[in-house]
């Protein structure tokens, strides 16, 4: 496995150390880009945070294949985010008062509130789970890693991962169902 692929695996596993490595290796590259394109140091830091988050979103998509290098992908993301940011600032300035205020919201306010409440409940329940459970859920449903890779990362057998995943998700299901039953 190449160094680049190893690093990609670390990022896909959502390791904080891998995030730090991206900062140390590639922050200056993104900073130079933003400064050259008319931004300042604060813009560069914001763009880098957004770009790193977008990179994580990209590489966790099922079937993601890295063609080239992580830095090239990060640069392309950062450049797009910066150009979009500049374009939206221009639109806002041009509209003085803002079209954005009239943009339709997804769902009714009540639905949005319910969604937020569910996310809070799931977040709290995740915090109550044991570390292993949280990890197996993250690897399975967020990082979208195959079962064999999860087993390798956690040092378990694939069969054990499958059972653990089912049990941990069932625990969350029960909490959410109980909460929904109480509100009905």
């Amino acid at each position: 496995m190449s160094r680049e692929q190893e690093w990609l695996k670390e990022l896909q596993a959502g390791k904080r150390e891998a995030y730090e490595k991206v900062y140390r290796r590639h922050y200056r590259m993104v900073e130079s880009l933003v400064l050259r394109m008319g931004g300042d140091g604060e813009d560069a830091q914001d763009i880098f945070q957004e770009s790193l988050f977008a990179l994580i979103q990209n590489i966790r998509k099922p079937g993601f294949q890295l063609n080239g290098k992580i830095s090239t992908l990060l640069y392309a993301i950062a450049r797009n985010i910066w150009l979009k940011k500049r374009a939206s600032e221009k639109v806002k300035a041009g509209n003085a008062g803002g079209l954005a205020e009239n943009l339709p919201q997804e769902g009714s306010p009540r639905e949005a509130e319910e969604r937020e409440a569910l996310i809070r409940l799931v977040t709290k329940s995740l915090n109550d789970l044991e570390e292993d459970c949280r990890e197996v859920l993250r690897y399975s449903f967020y990082q979208n890693l195959p079962q064999a890779e999860i087993a390798r990362l956690m040092g378990y057998s694939e069969a054990f991962v499958k059972v653990k995943k089912f049990r941990c998700l069932e625990y969350l299901r029960r909490i959410v169902r109980d909460s929904q039953d109480r509100t009905e």
Binding site: Y19, F53, I56, L126, L172
Partner: peptide, 17 residues
């Protein structure tokens, strides 16, 4: 449930960053 799980892990990723 899976949507909320994803959003929750999104928040965590942002916090880690």
């Amino acid at each position: 449930l899976l949507g909320a799980l994803e959003q929750s892990f999104d928040q965590r990723a942002r916090e880690d960053i």
